[in-house]
Structure formats: structure tokens, C-alpha cells
Design a protein around this nucleic acid. Structure first.
Lengths: 120, 120
DNA sequence: TGAACATTTAAACATTTATTTAATTGTTTG
DNA sequence: CAAACAATTAAATAAATGTTTAAATGTTCA
């Protein structure tokens, strides 16, 4: 990693931090995960799928959204590996993936819901 | 809350879940927090400010970004309350806010960095 | 006061993104 | 096979977003 000269010298504190600064590409990757839950509709769909397995029609009804709109979000979530799908007859069921990453995202959501909604 | 009829009946599992389904507005609020760290550049800036207090010029140098671009992200983060600023002479210093929400976001980031970067 | 420095703001631009409507694919069953 | 149903895809649109360049604001100090 190339050394970067700071315009201003405010002590050596930042040097140690810069040693551990995640690379740009790594930050983009992590940000990509947060982007998955950075839309209200998609976050709400994911919340549902964290708690049950459901078909597209029912998800759309629960969200009060159109089927194509829901399908769009499901595709994004599935392509990321956060959720999985299975077809049973005419219907396709979605649920949270059984992976460490999915569990981590799930936990992050739950924690954030608590903090953003203090006991009023 | 208005009751929603499901197009398909797959048992009563979903009913209990829908009782706890966060409201749309609440999801938008929580998603707004995740949106703050859904951009690679902004996430990297926040990571830095989680570990030290620095002025805009130095942040920009560390990120290898232009001052206005960094300033733009700092503004978004500051307006959200995730970071705070103080002026000392010509320079403005930024650092993570001392709030429960900031700590929560900080923790979520740290956890996500670990998972997205497995020991290779 | 005026020059130099640090930061922010404004305008412009290219991308991305969420949603709608319409058409298409896939599956079941009469 | 054909009709009905479930889900996805495609095209179109409006809105949001990150970055650049240029200008403006704020602060220090000679």
C-alpha cells in the first residue's frame, strides 16, 4: 500500500489508523451489503422473510405493493445470496438464506429497528 | 392497522408475523440509517472517523478524494447525527458522535467488515 | 487590510434506482 | 391442448445520488 502524505500534521494518531484502513474495494463490497437494506420497501420485505417463508403473491399483499415491484426486490436479495427461493407448483417461496452473512444482516436489522424506535 | 387478506392460504404462520411487521414509515427510517453506509466512499470515511478525529484535508488525502466530494459526504453524515464537527482555526475536525445510534452503526460496520472479508 | 489557506456551496452531469404497465414464461389442471 | 394462475422480464419513466469544476465563505496572520 502506497504511503499517503497528510496535508496537515495533527500528531501520529492517524498513522496507526491508516495502517488498518480497509481498502477501497473492500469498503465497496461491505457497502453493497448495506445497500441491500437501504431501501424501505426492500428492508420490509427482508424483515418478513426473516420471520417466515412466503410466496410472492402473499409478500406483495402484505407489503401492499405490486407483484413486479416485489419481484424486483426479491431478485436483488436473491442474487446477493441473502435469501433463497424454491418453487412449489405454481408458486415460488422465498425465505432468509441459512448463512452467516444472512444471520449477521438479520441481527443488524433487529438492532437498528430497536434503536430507531425508542419507547415512546 | 387494517387487516390484509392473503391471496393464498399457507397456514396461520404469517398471521403472527404480520402482527409484528414494522410499519412502512419505520422501515423507511431504519433504511435511511443503512443508506448512510451504503456507499463505499462514505463508509470508508465513517470507518476512519470511528477511529480518529481528523480535518477535512487529511480525510480527503487519506481517501484520495477531492475536498468537495469528502465535504459532501461529511455533510450527509453530520446531518444524520452520526458524526460531529468542531472548528479549530481554519480547520474543521470531524469524529464519530457519542450516541447510542453511532455506536450501533459502528458495531454493525465492524461486524460486516469481518464477514465480508473471510480469511483467505 | 489583504493575501493565503481550509472548507463549503452551487451548478452541471452521468449513473443508478424504484416503480408502473404490458408482455412473457412457467406450471397446473380441466 | 387450452385456459387459468403465479411469477418474472422488458420497456419506460421519474427521482435520487456521487462526483467534478468553479465560485463563495470563513479564518488566520503578516
Amino acid at each position: 500500500m502506497a504511503q499517503i502524505t497528510m496535508p496537515h500534521d495533527h500528531g501520529q494518531e492517524i498513522d496507526k489508523v491508516l495502517e488498518k484502513l480497509p481498502a477501497q474495494e473492500e469498503c465497496v463490497q461491505v457497502a453493497e451489503i448495506f445497500k441491500l437494506i437501504s431501501d424501505g420497501s426492500r428492508l420490509r420485505i427482508l424483515w418478513l422473510l426473516c420471520h417466515c417463508e412466503e410466496c410472492v403473491s402473499n409478500i406483495a399483499a402484505a407489503m401492499e405493493m405490486s407483484d413486479p415491484a416485489v419481484s424486483h426486490h426479491l431478485k436483488i436479495l436473491r442474487q446477493s445470496g441473502l435469501i433463497v427461493s424454491r418453487r412449489d407448483g405454481k408458486e415460488v417461496y422465498y425465505k432468509l438464506a441459512d448463512t452467516a452473512q444472512a444471520q449477521l444482516v438479520h441481527r443488524a436489522c433487529e438492532e437498528m429497528f430497536q434503536i430507531s424506535c425508542p419507547l415512546e
